[in-house]
Amino acid sequence: MSASDNLIPVIVSKVVEVNSIIKRFEFKHINGDALPAFSGGAHIVVEMIDGATKRKNAYSLMSSPFKLGQYAISVRREDDGRGGSKFMHEKVVPGMEMKISAPVNLFALDLRAKKHLMIAGGIGITPFMAQMTQATELGLPFELHYAARSASQAAYMGSLKAQFGDAVACYCADIGDRLNLEALLSDQPLGTHVYVCGPKGMIEAVVQTATNLGWPAAHIHFEHFLSPPMGKAFSVHLAKAGIDIDVGPEQSLLEAIEASGTPVNCLCRAGACGQCETQIVACDGDITHNDHWLEDDQRASKKFIMPCVSRFSGKRLELDL
């Protein structure tokens, strides 16, 4: 079963233009009921019906885990993306009915930590907003280091400073303000856990620097924001279902499998959680592995694929579904 099987009907209660590239969307349950409880770091999957195309994108919840009357997410407009964020920016207006999944948390605070060190890059700030509210309420020590291209693109920077004061440090690249990871990670008390969410390069830098300094892997947490990459259309044979399906250029393989009504597991829809791992029955062609899950030897074996982000080109791909 996957979290997006039982979708929750919601109504878009508010749309706010945060800056030129980011909008915030708020959702309420269509019956006014409380929405399911979640903890900071959780995400929801938003279903977008755009004419004949159905897309599903995952977004971190940024609203307070203690206020379940509504959820809030922020979406950065990616013009060269596959259209999900564009749809959110252009088509979604207050009063519209949509469907979302229940929250899933793959980026939760480790409550054994003596201190929570949060590092955000750009729109990667959103999961931390819910986490900071949670940490404040529970009295957990935390610090946020927020890096962005410029102050005008850094969503919520001003309000976060106002709300959390010295616990928030900001770095804007356009004025030459850079986060010195090595210095930051060399000066954390024992028992600190580090959390990073942002662009790929930033996640890699944090994981690499911390590991080189001797941080145990169990103290390093990261969340990849990866919307499924686009590509050329291809078709796939689902062996158990006995059907052939077509994957459109802007569609992910996972979405195409779901559209065919074939059951498939998933959680993150971003190649990170491992839930959607699928066995390949036959492969005559090349797989573009875009996930962070499979090991190199698994990729080389051409026996596994993560349908949420990976694509295929070639003659024939048969999956064990």
Binding site: L185, S186, D187, Q188, P189, L190, G191, T192, V194, A210, L213, G214, W215, H219
Partner: peptide, 10 residues
């Protein structure tokens, strides 16, 4: 000693 120690200690 450990109460003053930093992450990265072995």
């Amino acid at each position: 000693w450990l109460s003053d120690a930093k992450m990265g200690s072995q």
